[in-house]
C-alpha cells in the first residue's frame, strides 16, 4: 500500500510538470486546430538544453530552464515558418522539425543519448536546501507554482488584442484576415509560444528526474492530447477560458495517475504508449460514431 502511495505521489508530480507541456499542446490543438508534432522534439530539446546548461556551462538551473523555453520557442518558430511562409501542411511541418531536432538534440548532448545530472544543483535541490522540504513536495510546489503562473499569463495573454486575434484565427481565418490581421503571424506566434511552454516542461522534467534523455519526448504529443481529452471529460462543463487551461493540467495529472495505477496493476510499461494512443483514438472516434448513429436513428420511412 505504501508503495502505491509513493508511486501515486510521483505520478501527481510528473503530471503537473508535464502539464506545462499540455498547456502548450492546448494552444495549438484546441485554439488553432493544429496537431503540432514538433512537441516530441521540442520537449526533448528543452530537457537536453537544460541539462547541458547546468552541467557543462554551470548555469543557474532557473536560467537553464529559461533557455530551455527559448530553445523550444525557436523550434516552434521553425515549424511555424515552414507552415505559414512555405505552406507545408501543419502536421508535416511538425514532423520535419521533430525529426531534425533528434539530430540536434544528440549534438547538444555531444553525441550521448543520456546525460545524468547527479551531482549538480537543480531547481528542486535548491528549493530543498532553501526550505527543507522533501523531494516530492519540492517538485510538486515548483510544478504547481509554475503551472499557475503559466495559466495566469496565458489567460491574460489570450484576453489581449493579439491574443483574441489568435483565438479568432482558429475560429475563422478568412474573417480575421478581413479584419486586418496577418494570420500567418498569429499562427507563427501561437506555435512559438506553445513550444516555449513545451521546452520549459522538458527542462522541468529533466531537472526533476535528474537526467536528460534523447527519447524523453517520444510520444509527448499523444500524452498531451490524451491529457486534454481527459481534462475535457472531467471538467468539460466549465466554460471559462481559465478553467479550460486548468483542465489541461488536471487532465495531465489524471493521465499520470492512471498510468501509475495500471503499471502497478502489472501492465507492461512498454504497453503504455498503446494505451495512450487508444485513449486519444477512442476520444476522437466516439463523437463521430455518435453522430453517424444519431443520423441513422433519426431516419424514418414515413417522415414522422
Amino acid at each position: 500500500m505504501n508503495g502505491l502511495m509513493i508511486s501515486l505521489q510521483d505520478a501527481v508530480v510528473q503530471g503537473v510538470l508535464w502539464g506545462i507541456m499540455v498547456l502548450g499542446v492546448y494552444i495549438t490543438y484546441k485554439l488553432l486546430d493544429i496537431a503540432d508534432l514538433t512537441v516530441d522534439g521540442s520537449f526533448a530539446l528543452g530537457g537536453c538544453v537544460c541539462a547541458i546548461m547546468v552541467l557543462v556551462f554551470k548555469m543557474d538551473p532557473w536560467v537553464a530552464l529559461l533557455l530551455a523555453g527559448m530553445a523550444g520557442m525557436v523550434a516552434g518558430a521553425i515549424t511555424g515558418l515552414l507552415h505559414t511562409v512555405f505552406e507545408i501542411p501543419a502536421i508535416l511541418a511538425g514532423i520535419l522539425t521533430q525529426i531534425g531536432l533528434w539530430s540536434i538534440n544528440l549534438r547538444i548532448m555531444s553525441g550521448k543519448s543520456n546525460i545524468p545530472l547527479l551531482k549538480t544543483d537543480t531547481i528542486v535541490s535548491k528549493f530543498i536546501d532553501f526550505t527543507g522540504a522533501n523531494k516530492q513536495a519540492a517538485s510538486l510546489i515548483i510544478g504547481v507554482g509554475i503551472a499557475v503562473i503559466m495559466i495566469v499569463l496565458l489567460y491574460c495573454f489570450f484576453g489581449t488584442e493579439i491574443g483574441s486575434a489568435m483565438r479568432a484565427t482558429g475560429n475563422n481565418e478568412a474573417m480575421v484576415r478581413a479584419l486586418g490581421v496577418n494570420t500567418n503571424w498569429t499562427k507563427l506566434l501561437a506555435l512559438t509560444i506553445s513550444n516555449g511552454l513545451v521546452g520549459i516542461s522538458g527542462g522541468l522534467v529533466c531537472q526533476s528526474q535528474k537526467y536528460a534523455d534523447i527519447g524523453m519526448g517520444t510520444g509527448a504529443i499523444v500524452i498531451g492530447l490524451a491529457a486534454i481529452v481527459i481534462g475535457e471529460v472531467l471538467m468539460g462543463k466549465l466554460r471559462s477560458f481559465g478553467s479550460k487551461l486548468t483542465s489541461a493540467v488536471v487532465g495531465s495529472v489524471i493521465y499520470f495517475v492512471i498510468r501509475a495505477v495500471v503499471l502497478r496493476m502489472g501492465m507492461n510499461a512498454n504497453d503504455m504508449k498503446l494505451l495512450s494512443a487508444a485513449i486519444v483514438a477512442v476520444a476522437l472516434c466516439v463523437p463521430v460514431v455518435l453522430r453517424k448513429w444519431r443520423l441513422k436513428a433519426a431516419y424514418t420511412e414515413g417522415g414522422e
Binding site: 495573454f157 484576453g159 489581449t160 488584442e161 493579439i162 491574443g163 483574441s164 486575434a165 479584419l179 486586418g180 490581421v181
Partner: peptide, 12 residues
C-alpha cells in the same frame, strides 16, 4: 480594431 495595430492592451 480593423486597420489598427494590435498589441498587448486588453482585447475589449
Amino acid at each position: 480594431r480593423r486597420g489598427k495595430g494590435r498589441g498587448l492592451a486588453w482585447g475589449i
